[in-house]
């Protein structure tokens, strides 16, 4: 690809890693991430809504069957992990799984397809193709992955507060994981407990987000690198990596969903044993 346009490999890679941005500094938006993620989100919603609207308890159609299989799968995962009563967790898990999978799936499209299309579409409006950027995979954007993981984090805190009360939650921060029985030992252990708990709590959204981002970034980068090779190597390598990556995107979407369920169910459990 790079040979055709006469730019160096470095420029090509850099072009692929740049967002379509409006605004300056912190107050800017990645339009590509927003556009693709919202489109996919609504694709998810409307396609599932079609099935939900006409959902019948009689013989289901093909699409309803598919949706039911997914809903049943997610429901089962939630029921196996979370034993409380919460109306939010299962729909949240379904949203995460399908939406993240769809966003990850953007990686399966030929790496230059949508960026090149954007360049062509931009030309009639007088845009310089060199400055038309489009990062297609929304989960290959830390804003996206952190938006997901921080939302989950906020929900975790919310449910912790609701179940244990702010005081109960604060008490847990100071008295776990190391519990003591006399006052002196309690005071001594309060600080280490707090540090450990803060690290543990903050590590959850961080790892959740960076795991997805790292996987998708690596996958995307490998597609970009394969696109730099001679055309006759590109095809077998692209094919092999696409097949393998198909597994990865599914696993990552599943993992994000499962960890979300686990974190939220942990928020509902208090440590009665101590």
């Amino acid at each position: 690809m790079s040979q055709n346009t006469g730019i160096t490999a470095n420029q090509y890679i850099h072009h692929h890693l740049t967002y379509w941005t409006v605004g300056h500094g912190f107050w800017s938006l990645h339009l590509d991430t927003l556009l693709v993620s919202l489109t996919l989100g609504f694709v998810f919603f409307f396609s599932f809504w079609m099935a939900a609207r006409k959902a019948t308890s009689g013989v289901p159609g093909k699409w309803q069957n598919m949706v039911e299989a997914l809903v049943g799968f997610v429901d089962q995962q939630v029921k196996e992990t979370f034993h409380g009563r919460n109306k939010l967790i299962a729909p949240l898990a379904l949203t995460i799984f399908v939406w993240v999978w769809l966003m990850n799936f953007m990686d399966m499209l030929p790496v230059d397809l949508l960026p090149r299309l954007a360049q062509w579409l931009g030309m009639p409006f007088g845009a310089n193709p060199e400055h038309v950027y489009l990062k297609v995979v929304p989960t290959n954007d830390m804003n996206m992955t952190f938006a997901l993981s921080l939302t989950v984090f906020v929900l975790t805190l919310f449910f912790s507060f609701r179940v244990k009360g702010p005081l109960g939650y604060a008490k847990e921060l100071f008295t776990h994981p190391f519990a003591a029985h006399n006052l002196f030992a309690k005071l001594l252990l309060a600080l280490p407990n707090l540090v450990l708990n803060l690290v543990e709590t903050l590590a959850k959204p961080l790892s959740l987000s960076l795991r997805l981002f790292g996987n998708m970034f690596a996958g995307e980068l490998l597609f970009v690198l394969i696109a730099l090779l001679p055309w006759w190597v590109q095809w077998p390598l692209s094919f092999a990596w696409t097949v393998f990556h198909l597994l990865i995107i599914t696993i990552q979407a599943f993992l994000f969903m499962m960890l979300t369920i686990v974190y939220l169910s942990m928020a509902h459990e208090s440590h009665h044993s101590h």
């Binding site: 941005t21 605004g23 500094g25 912190f26 107050w27 800017s28 938006l29 990645h30 991430t33 927003l34 993620s37 919202l38 989100g41 998810f44 919603f45 599932f48 809504w49 099935a51 939900a52 609207r53 959902a55 019948t56 308890s57 289901p60 309803q64 949706v67 039911e68 809903v71 429901d75 109306k87 939010l88 299962a90 729909p91 949240l92 379904l94 949203t95 939406w99 929304p138 954007d141 830390m142 804003n143 996206m144 952190f146 938006a147 997901l148 921080l150 939302t151």
Partner: peptide
């Protein structure tokens, strides 16, 4: 990291709400 994060978080919340309201109950009910 920039303001996209907030936009995406809002979008995420919206989709969770839509799923919770319009999809999940109907499918599980059926």
């Amino acid at each position: 990291i920039d303001a996209s994060l907030f936009a995406e978080a809002i979008a995420f919340g919206l989709f969770i709400w839509l799923t919770m309201k319009f999809i999940w109950p109907h499918i599980t009910k059926a």
